[in-house]
Simulated assay, not measured.
Amino acid sequence: MRLSLVAGCALVLGLAAVMPAAASTAGPAAVAVRYTFDGPSPLAEASGRGLDLSPVSRYGGAFTTVAHNGGRALAFPPPCKNEPCPRIALRAVATELNPGRRQIRYGAAVRLAADETTKGENVLQKGYSARGSQYKLQIDGLAGRPSCVFVDDSDPLIHTAVSSVGVADNRWHTLECRRSGPHVTILVDGVPRGRTTIPAGLSVHNRLPFSIGGKGSFADNDQFQGILDEVWVEIG
């Protein structure tokens, strides 16, 4: 059966009225950044976004570069028991690394010895739990168990997905945090090792810098004490 031209146009217009436009479903552009610590400038951001890192340090805190996987990695200050201890963090001012409520994945390659563990070492973070919102990858306790942390913009409750295995064995491990809706998963060497549930509407959006290796250079900065490589964040 053939439709008349008028009837055919009416059918097309009717379908257009009930079908959503492609633009209406588009969310914010995806964001991906990566720090390889290779090249002439080890603190340059590798994906071309210009989000290069700048060090903040105190008491002689510094990093050194070491060979890893055909490139370089960053070694942070070793354990220190007598204050004042050297402290350093690497920062980028990057509001585009605020995921809001969107899906986010982030991670790093780490090498940490058994004598380099503390009650808390920060691998990477955006924001502070005590001042607004946050997402973070940390390694905690003598067992060196990694975990993923999320804190909402308007609720100070800390949500943590803790790995069932430690990584403080002086070998390289890849760590990854994944947030998808109400679920946060921690992966160690590509294997899911822990999970937690967070509010589906939890949002992370703050004006604080993105930091690697510690919160800053102050006394309680959760200094990372091992070696880091391949730090990355993907949003959206």
Rank of each mutant, 00 (worst) to 15 (best):
Arg2Ser: 15
Val6Lys: 14
Leu11Phe: 12
Val12Met: 15
Leu13His: 09
Gly14Arg: 12
Ala16Gln: 14
Ala17Ser: 15
Ala17Gly: 13
Ala21His: 13
Ala23Asp: 10
Ala23Val: 09
Ala30Asp: 14
Ala32Gly: 10
Tyr35His: 04
Thr36Gln: 10
Phe37Gly: 00
Gly39Asn: 12
Ser41Gly: 14
Ser41Tyr: 12
Ser47Arg: 13
Arg49His: 12
Arg49Trp: 07
Arg49Met: 11
Ser54Asn: 06
Val56Gly: 06
Tyr59Lys: 05
Gly60Asn: 13
Gly61Pro: 04
Ala67Gln: 13
His68Asp: 12
Ala73Phe: 05
Pro78Ala: 14
Pro78Val: 10
Pro78Leu: 11
Pro79Asn: 13
Cys80Val: 04
Cys80Gly: 01
Lys81Ile: 09
Lys81Arg: 13
Arg87Ile: 00
Arg87Trp: 01
Arg87Glu: 05
Ile88Arg: 00
Ile88Asp: 03
Ala89Trp: 15
Ala92Thr: 15
Val93Lys: 11
Glu96Ile: 13
Glu96Lys: 03
Leu97Thr: 09
Gly100Arg: 04
Arg101Gln: 14
Tyr106His: 04
Gly107Lys: 06
Gly107Ile: 08
Ala108Arg: 08
Arg111Trp: 01
Leu112Glu: 07
Leu112Ser: 05
Lys119Ile: 00
Gly120Val: 09
Val123Gln: 06
Val123Ala: 08
Val123Lys: 06
Leu124His: 03
Leu124Cys: 11
Ser129Leu: 02
Ala130His: 08
Ser133Pro: 09
Tyr135Val: 06
Leu137His: 04
Gln138Trp: 12
Asp140Gly: 00
Gly141Met: 10
Gly141Glu: 09
Leu142Phe: 02
Gly144Asn: 11
Gly144Gln: 11
Pro146Ser: 11
Val149Asn: 00
Asp155Pro: 01
Leu157Val: 11
His159Val: 06
Thr160Asp: 07
Ala161Phe: 03
Val162Ile: 13
Ser163Gly: 03
Val167Asn: 03
Ala168Ser: 11
Asp169Val: 07
Asp169Gln: 10
Asp169Leu: 07
Asn170Leu: 00
Asn170Glu: 05
Trp172Leu: 04
Thr174Lys: 05
Cys177Pro: 03
Arg178Tyr: 01
Arg179Glu: 08
Arg179Ser: 06
Gly181Met: 04
Pro182Ser: 15
His183Gly: 01
Gly190Cys: 09
Gly190Ala: 09
Val191Gln: 15
Arg193Ser: 01
Arg193Phe: 00
Gly194Pro: 04
Gly194Glu: 07
Ile198Gly: 06
Ile198Thr: 10
Val204Ala: 01
Asn206Pro: 10
Asn206Val: 12
Pro209Met: 07
Phe210Tyr: 15
Phe210Val: 01
Phe210Asn: 00
Ser211Asp: 08
Ser211Ala: 15
Ser217Thr: 02
Phe218Pro: 02
Asn221Asp: 13
Asn221Ala: 15
Gly226Cys: 06
Gly226Glu: 05
Leu228Ser: 10
Glu230Trp: 05
Val233Pro: 01
Val233His: 03
Glu234Gly: 00
Ile235Cys: 03
